[in-house]
């Protein structure tokens, strides 16, 4: 499939911690993309009601516990999320982490295997490594954070740690990466994914 026709869903989560089994999702931003176009108007931003509060991460995300008390439970928003992701390629920064979280929650609350609903995953950090490889640049992990990538692509960051703002930032970075990848003749989703997987494998070997 042509990359320029592919339907993507750029996601970002804010969570109470790093363990999908114990920790909870606090907020979720999803922005659809069609090829190079970010459909900001169709994006969603959802706040979730956590069962237990971890004040420390509230401070990081700037989410007010008071606001969160009014937020929805995961079971109630699950259908909406599923609809947004269905049939799309999920894009994110460290997308595996976000996907694991979502998959776990879908299993727990809806008894659904989310992995059957979306098609592929693209991690913009790994995509950046693909690009670096093309250009013969050394890869430095410090340069792969969301902030560093935003800086590299000249996107001003005004409001971080809001799931929607971060998803938008991710979408913009992905958009520019796509523009570059297209210049190297990689214009199908399949070649994009296989390039990414080759890097992932190398990376796994390195580790």
């Amino acid at each position: 499939m042509k990359a320029k026709k592919t339907k993507f869903a750029v996601i970002d989560l804010e969570t109470t911690g790093f363990n999908p089994k114990k920790d909870e999702i606090l907020s979720l931003g999803i922005i659809p993309m069609t090829g190079l176009r970010i459909d900001l108007g169709e994006s969603v931003y959802l706040l979730l009601k956590p069962k237990k509060f971890k004040i420390s991460s509230m401070i990081v995300h700037g989410l007010d516990p008071k606001v969160l008390r009014d937020a929805q439970e995961f079971a109630k928003i699950a259908d909406e999320v599923l609809k947004m992701l269905e049939g799309r390629t999920i894009v994110g920064h460290s997308v595996n982490f976000d996907c694991k979280f979502l998959e776990q929650k879908f299993r727990d609350f809806k008894r659904i295997k989310l992995e059957n609903y979306y098609k592929n995953k693209i991690d913009i950090a790994i995509l950046e490594m693909v690009l670096a490889k093309f250009l013969g640049e050394p890869v430095n992990f410090e340069n792969l954070t969301l902030d560093a990538l935003a800086g590299k692509y000249g996107i001003t960051i005004s409001f971080r740690h809001n799931a929607l703002a971060d998803a938008f930032l991710t979408a913009q970075i992905f958009q520019m990466q796509l523009l570059r990848v297209l210049k190297y003749g990689i214009d199908t989703l399949e070649s994009l994914i296989s390039m990414q997987n080759s890097i992932s494998k190398e990376l796994r070997n390195d580790l």
């Binding site: 190079l36 176009r37 970010i38 459909d39 900001l40 108007g41 979408a171 913009q172 958009q175 520019m176 796509l178 523009l179 297209l182 210049k183």
Partner: peptide, 10 residues
């Protein structure tokens, strides 16, 4: 903003 699209052109 709710109706905005951000598009890229080669």
């Amino acid at each position: 903003v709710k109706n905005l699209k951000v598009n890229a052109y080669e």
